[in-house]
Design a protein around this nucleic acid. Sequence first.
DNA 1: ATCGATGCAAAAGTTTTGCATATAC
DNA 2: GTATATGCAAAACTTTTGCATCGAT
Lengths: 146, 146
Amino acid sequence: MTKKELFDKLKIVVKEKALKYTKQRELILRTIHSSKTHINAEQIHKKLTISNKNNKVGIATVYRNLLFLEETGLVLSISLENNLKRYEINRHKHHDHLVCIHCGKIVEFINQNIEKEQETIAKKFKFKLINHTMHLYGVCEDCGKD
Amino acid sequence: MTKKELFDKLKIVVKEKALKYTKQRELILRTIHSSKTHINAEQIHKKLTISNKNNKVGIATVYRNLLFLEETGLVLSISLENNLKRYEINRHKHHDHLVCIHCGKIVEFINQNIEKEQETIAKKFKFKLINHTMHLYGVCEDCGKD
DNA sequence: ATCGATGCAAAAGTTTTGCATATAC
DNA sequence: GTATATGCAAAACTTTTGCATCGAT
């Protein structure tokens, strides 16, 4: 998804809710989009503080917008073992995460067999499945060389 | 696993490391063991404060011992979407979690097909798998009745 | 002009740390 | 007796909230 497409989506969501399209919202969304890794609130704030010396974004605004962006479905969050929420753009392709415990690298993947089994499990326990998270923790090829 | 077996394990671990077997350690472990649900630090502290009016356990001791107990492998922690670590006794039977988003009920399950697929995925991305978490979020039968 | 959004600072919530004292060994 | 563990309080860290002001519409 290009930045333009993403910002257009934001514009639509904002208009639908009769809210306002602000520079800060765009900047926060842009930062998540540009980030190679899944990024957290503090990292977003830091990046914006460094790159936008004259046009500050407060940490409260970052938190408020992360909640907003997640509510609207534009971004997704994951909670890894260390208990810090990290954010990513919602590309509407469901996926799970493979996390390197050494370097923090995150690889996204999807496996249809697992998805099917999850439905089976939910049915067995009579749960109506809403969503799920799966995080595989390991050591990536690079880190495993040492 | 009975309380006695669990406390015996704690005794062994403590002896091996030349540490001390304290009343507080036992109380914290006992509280996790007795808890029907996966319990967090604050809940453990609250329970001990109520039941042990004359023999207090400080919140710092709770946190220090949770780290210790997790390190030794006697307990496991899970981080759910809300970003609060919850603890359970390690029964050495790996399992995953089905969580009701209404009432918070947690059901444990294991599925060998998923375990196998996870190994396949790790191999594909050249990760050496250390562990994993899978949380299915949904609405349980009781809550779904409304 | 209006009403939501922002920045700041204060507050709230969670976890960690320093230190004097207590306690297991 | 010695070294670890504890309780307390303070500090550190993360997230939320109140409020005056700004800015998008």
